[in-house]
């Protein structure tokens, strides 16, 4: 049994927001006394994205990360401003190609770890690679025909 908690109403009245517009540049003037009683509408973009000017959306292609829950066609949210830590899922350029893998160690050596037994880990030592950004979220559509 999965326990579900209702967080609030999904706001359907606001205009669709493209990422660049979601920086929240509008600042209010004097606070109104009514503010304390007004519930905020939940803004998913503002909730998930901490660094708008450093955040990019990318499309996942392939099958090497299925056991980490990333499937072909999923939408990745990538933050370039974060320092990669052991265990992070990264977008990384390897030999000039952008790829997505988990950063981990085998023995004491850093590797890019696929999450699918039919793929091999990639040792980072001596590889021509550059971290592009840290994947903070993966948007995976569960219903056929919905946006993804």
């Amino acid at each position: 049994m999965i326990h579900l908690e209702i967080l609030g109403r999904v706001d359907q009245t606001t205009l669709p927001i493209a990422l660049p517009l979601a920086a929240g540049e509008v600042r209010a003037g004097f606070p109104s006394p009514a503010d304390d009683y007004l519930e905020q509408e939940l803004d998913l973009v503002a909730h998930l994205i901490q660094h708008p000017s450093a955040t990019f959306y990318m499309r996942a292609k392939g099958a090497s990360m299925v056991r980490d829950g990333i499937y072909d066609g999923d939408l990745l949210i990538v933050d370039r401003s974060l320092d990669p830590k052991d265990g992070d899922v990264l977008v990384i350029s390897v030999d000039g190609e952008l790829t997505c893998k988990r950063l981990g160690k085998i023995g004491n050596l850093p590797h890019l770890l696929p999450a699918n037994p039919s793929f091999q880990p990639i040792p980072l030592e001596g590889a021509d690679c550059q971290v592009w950004g840290v994947v903070t979220h993966n948007v995976h559509a569960l219903r056929r025909g919905v946006a993804r």
Partner: peptide
Amino acid sequence: RYTTRWDELPLVKL
């Protein structure tokens, strides 16, 4: 148009 179109996002190889 990598950053302004949903159908033109950069592809990341898994």
